[in-house]
């Protein structure tokens, strides 16, 4: 068998192994690929940074554990940033599975890294609300109709952080971490465009291309996938160097990303080279007439 044919008929399990190695080796060696924030990510950072301390921030965790490797680093970076700036954060989710993601932050990150921050005074968990875009619409029209207690059932009036929250516009910004529908798109449609509350946040790499058209008029900023998270971490570390070791989760995961992408590009080039060499080879009539394309 000729070399081009061998390459084109390579067992897909070999490619799986190569991808696995491309992910595992950088995880072991821990190379750092420091990102610099692009304007679309920097604008989120700048907005959070410029808000006066004590501003009310609405942070919606619209994702579940299946997309946590991409969105957890964004969540942690945003929580660290908002808490460092002294903002009052209301956690919320439109995803049933988002409840667990919020608890990871409120039970693990906040008590350890911000022991001086108190539940009900500096942050609150408003929990999950059903209704997709309709839930957002209801909150914009009459916030207390849908949200009248926190996730544990404590009335909002009994919590200092929410006692005087009567409307959605009492929040100065809406941040959403999005894995699909409902998510940032619905926050733009039903809250940002109607109530004029600045909307920004992050999305998995799969949903990010759908969200870019909203920037900059309807979306203040967007973190697209792990790269976006890594850029936000860089912006955070540039401003607050104390976080250099704490917030490098996405940056560390960019190592496997870089190596795997290089590998995939090489495989695509190799596959195309083999295909064209095979087509132009002697005696390959089928290839010359375009019938020799062996997909896969």
């Amino acid at each position: 068998m000729r070399i081009p044919d061998t390459i084109l008929q390579i067992d897909r399990r070999i490619i799986f192994l190569l991808i696995g190695a491309a992910v595992c080796i950088p995880l072991l060696l821990k190379p750092r690929f420091q990102d610099s924030p692009t304007p679309i990510v920097q604008s989120i950072f700048d907005t959070v940074e410029r808000l006066p301390a004590g501003s009310r921030v609405f942070l919606s965790f619209d994702y579940g554990p299946d997309t946590a490797p991409e969105l957890d680093p964004m969540a942690k970076a945003l929580v660290r940033h908002t808490m460092t700036r002294g903002h009052e954060v209301s956690f919320f989710t439109l995803f049933p599975e988002g409840v667990g993601q919020i608890k990871k932050i409120t039970d693990n990150l906040l008590p350890v890294e911000f022991p001086d921050k108190a539940y009900g005074r500096d942050y609150v968990n408003l929990g999950y609300k059903a209704g997709l875009g309709g839930a957002i619409n209801t909150m914009v029209v009459n916030f207390r109709t849908l949200v009248n207690a926190d996730a544990e059932g404590t009335p909002l009036d009994d919590l200092p952080i929410t006692a005087d929250v009567d409307e959605m516009v009492d929040y100065v910004i809406i941040l959403s971490l999005t894995a699909g529908d409902p998510g940032l798109k619905e926050w733009i449609q039903f809250a940002g465009d109607i109530a004029g509350i600045p909307v920004m946040g992050g999305g998995t790499a799969v949903v990010a291309p759908e969200l870019y058209p909203y920037y900059p008029q309807q979306l203040v900023g967007l973190m697209g996938g792990l790269k976006g998270a890594s850029e936000y971490e860089s912006a955070l570390v540039d401003r607050y160097p104390a976080y250099r070791n704490a917030t490098m989760e996405a940056t560390m995961r960019m190592g496997p990303q870089v190596v795997t992408h290089v590998l995939i590009v090489l495989l695509v080039l190799l596959g195309n080279l083999a295909y064209f060499l095979g087509r132009s080879g002697p005696g390959n009539r089928a290839g010359r007439t375009g019938q020799g394309n062996r997909a896969g």
Partner: peptide
């Protein structure tokens, strides 16, 4: 691709 590699990571 980036999303899938993130999940694999």
């Amino acid at each position: 691709v980036m999303a899938r590699i993130s999940l694999l990571t």
